[in-house]
Design a protein around this nucleic acid. Structure first.
Length: 504
RNA sequence: GGCGCAUUGGUGUAGUUGGUUAACACGCUGCCCUCUCAAGGCAGAGAUCACGGGUUCGAGUCCCGUAUGCGCUACCA
């Protein structure tokens, strides 16, 4: 592994909502890159849009990063704190003749119609023979400009992009990029109300924070040319850029909260029982793939194997089916979560199970010491069939509480279909009551002997017992279940008449 | 409207100097295992590599065009 302490990357979300999984993926890639090279991973909150930015959102972003295990270095930078610097830089560029004051009155734009407005304006400009350099204030004399500004006339500041030439940069993912100046407008740096705009703020902050590698979403790829111009105007060296393929919805459209709801929010995965390591692993595979094809990777492996040149250029589709509870999110994500739940070290899983049981009011303090061995054995037994942490308090509820529901289909299939079970099960209970010691082997021997005496198949009693004891039709090997449920509870549940009560 | 990026089985991807039957994972089907369901093992279905041209002895891989999707084109970020 090469070590490069000079590497400084950043994650720069705008706090206008929860942490989007696309943003989380950007954060992860930046973090992996920094950690791999021994560099710094910085967090900058881009809160310059005061209307939409909220503290709550900032908190949820930080929480989300913590959940994923993405720790950042140094102090968080709040972009709004740097507004004065941004303004000063814009004014300096005016003084140096690299930017100019635009006294054109501000146009009102509605968010909903901007896209159409852009098209309309482009068309009419083309018809009138106007181009990006047609602004009448572009070549206003310095004296005239100063005079009008001093007179209090409002103005925006625009970068003065040369008529001839082109910008160039090399993107670590998308390769060599070039763009003619003719295609780049004289971008606004400072609004007429003095508010600095995105491209200016980003560049100045990245310079200030000594960012060496800008790793962000592909939606910024074309904007990068404007930023390249700003680096040059400000006399600063360009960082290395790396743009990440976008994450799309199943219909290949943009993944958005308005259209897709909570599936795009990172907190949803935490709240619905994802193991953070599993989700992080899944996220790492969205737009990147390991060189050797091995997909289940620990953080250490992720850090070691991650590299910018295995990032894809085509967008990743995040697959989920709305309105389908079993496929509410990407199947591979669900599979990976299950894989982690059944294979991760038990010691790492237990705290998560504890949190889940606590939330479901199923946690007992005895699990901390006296009953810890029982808890470990039980979790070990049931985790193999679970997809999310939620399953411990839902499907697995009967292991931790007397108050659990019977699955109707299970009752019908395993209990009601055989009338004799109404007598057989209590009789089995009495037989099991006498078993001592009550263990996997002894419970099995007793049940099989009982089946022989009664002249029924052991399977009938086994499946019926499963439903009586756990409320379900599926689960671990039944004698293991007897063992962890314990003699007393098993006997009591076998004697219960509740299934007949409820469903017949 | 302009500019840019992308396009390999249902999904995520491998295929990075063009060269045998296009590889892996998820999902799907069947079998084995078995007290159920998983897991695991085995087997299998599923891709004319978006489409049309071209270069070449030979192209998923190079070139051109078309289509589709996405992005940018704001005194949004």
């Amino acid at each position: 592994m090469t070590t490069n302490t000079a590497v400084r990357v950043r994650f720069a979300p705008s706090p206008t909502g929860y942490l989007h999984i696309g943003a989380a993926r950007s954060a992860l890639f930046n973090w992996l890159y920094a950690r791999q090279l021994g560099g710094k991973f910085l967090l900058r909150i881009e809160d310059t849009d005061l209307q939409r930015s909220t503290e709550e959102s900032t908190r949820s972003i930080i929480e989300g990063m913590e959940w994923l295990g993405l720790d950042y270095d140094e102090e968080i930078v709040f972009q709004s704190d740097n507004a004065d610097k941004h303004r000063a830089a814009a004014n300096r560029l005016v003084d140096e003749g690299k930017a100019y004051r635009d006294f054109t009155p501000k146009e009102q734009r509605e968010d909903a119609t901007v896209k159409q407005g852009i098209v309309d304006r482009a068309r009419s400009h083309a018809a009138e023979g106007l181009d990006h350099r047609s602004n009448p204030f572009r070549d206003l004399s310095q004296e005239e400009s100063d005079r009008r500004a001093a007179a209090g006339e409002p103005f925006a500041i625009r970068l003065k992009v040369a008529r001839e030439g082109s910008t160039h940069f090399s993107d670590a993912v998308y390769g060599e990029q070039a763009r003619n100046y003719a295609e780049i407008e004289d971008l606004v740096l400072l609004r007429s109300d003095g508010h600095p705009l995105y491209n200016l703020s980003v560049v100045i902050d990245d310079i200030e924070m000594a960012i060496t590698h800008v790793i962000r979403g592909q939606d910024h790829l074309t904007n990068t040319h404007k930023q390249v111009l700003l680096y040059a105007a400000l006399g600063a060296p360009q960082p290395q850029f790396a743009h990440l393929p976008l994450i799309l919805a199943p219909n290949k459209g943009k993944l958005s909260k308005r259209k897709h709801g909570e599936v795009v929010s990172l907190t949803t995965y935490r709240d619905r029982g994802f193991v953070p390591e599993a989700f992080r692993n899944f996220l790492a595979l969205l737009g990147w793939s390991p060189p050797d094809g091995k997909e289940i990777l620990t953080v250490a492996e992720l850090m070691q194997q991650f590299s910018l040149d295995h990032i894809h250029r085509s967008p990743a589709v995040f697959n989920f089916q709305e309105n389908d509870p079993r496929h509410w999110t990407d199947e591979k994500a669900l599979w990976m979560n299950a894989e982690y739940i059944r294979t991760m070290p038990l010691a790492d899983l237990l705290p998560m199970v504890k949190a889940e049981l606590r939330a479901g009011k199923l946690w007992r303090e005895e699990y901390v010491d006296d009953e810890r061995p029982w808890l470990e054995k039980t979790v070990e037994l049931i985790r193999h069939r679970f997809f999310t942490l939620k399953d411990f308090s839902q499907q697995g509820r009967a292991y931790f509480s007397e108050d659990f529901d019977f699955d109707e289909a299970a009752v019908r299939k395993n209990i009601l279909k055989e009338p004799r079970l109404k007598e057989l099960l209590p009789a089995l209970a009495e037989k099991l009551e006498t078993v001592d010691p009550f263990k996997v082997e002894t419970a099995e021997a007793a049940l099989r002997a009982f089946a022989d005496e009664a002249g029924v198949k052991a399977g009938l009693l086994i499946n019926a017992s499963r439903t009586m004891l756990t409320g379900q039709a599926v689960g671990p090997s039944m004698f293991e279940v007897f063992d962890v449920i314990g003699q007393e509870r098993a006997v009591r549940r076998l004697k219960s008449q509740q299934p007949w009560f409820e469903f017949s």
